[in-house]
């Protein structure tokens, strides 16, 4: 039987009727049509569906929809808005060529942002660890790690 859940996504309130065995990823992509969050494996192994749930990065394919009732979610669409400046992580990903096919990119950006929110000056090892749940098959991660370092620098300059 369908359940009514309320959730806040990118600052907007939504009400969704859903079977309780559907996931947050299903709700985001299919009901709310926020397709920036990608479906790669449906089992929490690739990280393409990473979103922020109450500020923490989670695999949205592992969260059942009723669990997010009343909770706050940020997806890649909430990280930047058209005609407004990008987040420093996004800027750095563009500048450092940290993107190839782009399928892992939204999840990578979310994981990187979450890292820099909790640890503004991460070491290379800390960056690698924070991204270990996000698989990328194109880049070999080299330029992604460089981009996260550059984003940390940008944010540091922004603070000073």
């Amino acid at each position: 039987m369908k359940q009514r859940i309320k959730l806040f996504v990118n600052g907007e309130a939504y009400e969704v009727y859903t079977e309780p065995n559907r996931t947050l990823l299903d709700v985001l992509r299919e009901d709310l049509e926020l397709t920036g969050t990608k479906r790669g494996c449906d089992s929490g192994e690739c990280g393409a569906c990473t979103v922020l749930l109450n500020g923490k990065p989670v695999n949205s394919c592992l969260i059942l929809a009723p669990e997010v009732d009343g909770q706050s979610v940020v997806t890649i669409e909430g990280i930047s808005k058209p005609n407004l400046p990008l987040h420093p992580v996004q800027e750095a990903f563009i500048e450092k060529w940290a993107i190839q096919c782009g399928f892992c990119t939204p999840g990578m950006v979310i994981s990187a942002k979450a890292l820099l929110d909790r640890n503004p000056e991460p070491s290379e090892e800390e960056i690698k660890l924070a991204l270990a749940g996000n698989l990328c098959r194109c880049t070999g991660y080299v330029k992604i790690v460089e981009a996260v370092k550059a984003a940390a620098e940008k944010m540091k300059e922004g603070r000073s």
Binding site: G36, I76, W97, G102
Partner: peptide, 14 residues
């Protein structure tokens, strides 16, 4: 820079 980077980094690439 990649011509498709902006769409990809903002999750708007389809």
């Amino acid at each position: 820079t990649r011509v498709d980077a902006l769409e990809k980094v903002t999750g708007r690439a389809v």
